[in-house]
Design a protein around this nucleic acid. Structure first.
Lengths: 131, 131
DNA sequence: CGGGATCCAAGCAGATACTG
DNA sequence: CAGTATCTGCTTGGATCCCG
């Protein structure tokens, strides 16, 4: 995950490293951000709940991902004092608006898993024949 | 980049590691896949053309990314014999269909760069105040 | 409960050199 | 031109321990 974005350079070429879309994709790209956003819009909101819900994530990664999302203004962090302490995470309006494009991508995935898997098997079969 | 996908498990929980959408997102996530798809739908198709067009990519990474896309059936590789040799890459139909959800994501990015940058600056200001 | 700090292994990716 | 091969540094992230 890229932890520090550079200054905004409005609409640079998509092939430039400082292109805004590319900077955002770097976020989406990391292993956990999308899962956390999904879990948040799915009802979970407490730290331990997210930790349990997202299979395979470590506390370190969950913390790191949530911090970045919070810094980006996509997630709001609310501390509920008491013993034991409770921390709630919720999507901001911006974070919520990200759900739609993500859903589109997820739908594309589900729609194409089949052909992708088939293509892979065909490719691998070819590979083995050659050797 | 994940170079080897496991067997298809139809529509597992999004929080399971073997969820199809998650496997696809692992691809989208890597640093170059999206850029290569964009460059391919933008006209470039030869290896050296892509290499020049995508700023910062190395031949190694370009090759690796193209191989994976080819294995996934999203890109077709065509060798044009001759001296010097030429290799053309084109999006398959599946690869082409990926452009739309990616464009949606890019649009979201461009639409939210502003608020994200602002949120970051606010967050960082807070951080510095505390210390 | 919700983290922070530290340590360490693995693998990802860049640089360089070489090839058909 | 279109790659492959090797070497290496550096980031990523898991494990573990600690704290308020």
């Amino acid at each position: 995950m890229v932890t520090h974005l550079t200054r905004p350079v409005l609409h640079g070429s998509p092939y430039r490293a400082d292109c805004p879309a590319r900077r955002v994709l770097d976020r989406i790209g990391d292993r956990w951000t999308v899962l956390v956003v999904a879990a948040l819009s799915d009802g979970s909101s407490r730290f331990s709940g997210l930790n349990r819900r997202i299979e395979g994530i470590s506390k370190k990664m969950l913390t790191q991902t949530l911090r970045t999302l919070e810094r980006d203004g996509l997630v709001r962090r609310t501390v509920c004092p008491g013993v034991p302490i409770r921390v709630e995470y919720t999507l901001t309006e911006a974070g919520d608006s990200l759900r739609e494009p993500l859903r589109a991508l997820q739908e594309w995935s589900n729609a194409h898993v089949g052909v992708i898997s088939a293509a892979q098997e065909a490719y691998d079969r070819q590979e083995r024949e050659i050797r």
